[in-house]
């Protein structure tokens, strides 16, 4: 193979598996990295086993085809419905069950261990399924913006010239624009659904990826081995995917993990402004919005409804914090200057 001089291959040439590489070592030595990784992992487990960790509502059970007699099947890994609930839960499972229609929140009880929000929604259920919503939003947005970033950054870097100039000016504008402002405009116009929230955030989140990809492509483009690969007749796309892309992986991991946090923050801010998923959808931002009218307790007991804002607020904080710690640690691990 002609490409043995690529840095990627050079590292592989020492025959170290990735977990023994320098960045991996640096990562493991960083206690904050481990805290971050653990936090994210914990949320992942909660999100994955959401159907087992909560008592689904009646419509959710109905849509899963579960009757009163077969209700235990959800917790039984040998049954199909166990996996169905995990991998393809019906939309109705994302709706928090209601304990009542009362606007007054209920404090934690045996039935509702985390209490209920205003309008009687089960906070515990919302916390568990909200983790799923957070991952859904985060992963899809990151995936979409990655795709857009690849396309725009890749084209700009690879073709260069005026294409680069135009695309990067456009990127500059989008990146400089306050992302929340743009997202608000897009969501109100497209309509207030979860899908549109995701689309809107992706439309404002891609420039970081485009920049990173362009920068790496530009860096690698003129290296000898790429030139030689070209000379040997490798086609553009192949040069791009085989030689340029691998170099972008490290910085992309950093951007993506930091983005997971900020995307969820933006989404919850939108929900807070009333621009999120529909009422009752398990979504932490919306739960904070529910708490908005109930931050004050009755006279003499000002913190009586603490559970309505503290639980979802902490959920957002810890989730975002986990990703940020992780992203920060990745950055330190990959960045040789800091080593």
């Amino acid at each position: 193979m002609a490409e043995t001089t690529s840095p990627q291959d050079a590292e592989q040439a020492t025959n170290l598996p990735w977990w023994k590489s320098k960045p991996a070592k640096r990562f493991r030595r960083n206690p904050l990295a481990l805290v971050g990784a653990f936090t994210v992992l914990a949320f992942l487990v909660i999100a994955f086993f959401a159907p087992q960790l909560s008592d689904p509502s009646r419509s959710c059970l109905r849509d899963l085809g579960v009757t009163a007699g077969t209700i235990d099947d959800i917790n039984n890994p040998t049954k199909g419905v166990f996996w169905q609930a995990i991998f393809v839960p019906p939309e109705s499972c994302y709706t928090m069950p209601r304990a009542s229609f009362s606007p007054i929140p209920e404090s934690p009880s045996a039935d509702y261990r985390f209490g209920t929000t205003s309008s009687g929604y089960d906070i515990g259920y919302g916390l568990v399924w909200g983790a799923r919503t957070a991952f859904n939003i985060g992963l899809i947005v990151v995936g979409l913006s990655l795709a857009m970033g690849l396309l725009i950054g890749g084209l700009a870097g690879f073709i260069g010239g005026w294409v680069d100039e135009v695309l990067m000016r456009f990127t500059d504008i989008v990146i400089a624009f306050p992302s929340l402002v743009l997202a608000i405009v897009i969501v109100t116009i497209l309509g207030q659904t979860l899908t549109n929230v995701i689309v809107a955030i992706a439309l404002v989140a891609w420039p970081n990826y485009a920049r990173v990809i362009r920068a790496e492509v530009m860096k690698v483009k003129n290296l000898d081995y790429v030139e030689s690969a070209r000379a040997l007749g490798s086609r553009g796309l192949r040069v791009f995917t085989k030689h340029m892309l691998p170099n972008t992986i490290a910085p992309l991991i950093v951007v993506a993990s930091l983005d997971m946090g900020s995307v969820v923050l933006t989404a919850s801010a939108l929900s807070f402004l009333g621009l999120g998923p529909p009422m009752g959808y398990a979504d932490w931002g919306q739960m904070v919005n529910f708490a908005r009218n109930w931050i004050l307790g009755p006279p003499g007991d000002p913190l009586a409804y603490w559970y309505t804002s503290v639980y979802p607020g902490m959920a957002i904080l810890v989730f975002v914090l986990g990703w940020n710690l992780l992203g920060d640690a990745f950055r330190d691990a990959f960045d040789p200057r800091d080593s």
Partner: peptide
């Protein structure tokens, strides 16, 4: 170094609407 970084990251991770509401509860309410 570790401490300031943690403080900064926690601040960065705080949803500003949650922080704002909590500040109101504490300083305007309680």
């Amino acid at each position: 170094d570790q401490l300031t970084r943690v403080v900064a990251i926690v601040g960065w991770s705080l949803p500003n609407f949650v922080l704002g509401i909590w500040l109101l509860v504490i300083f305007y309410g309680g």
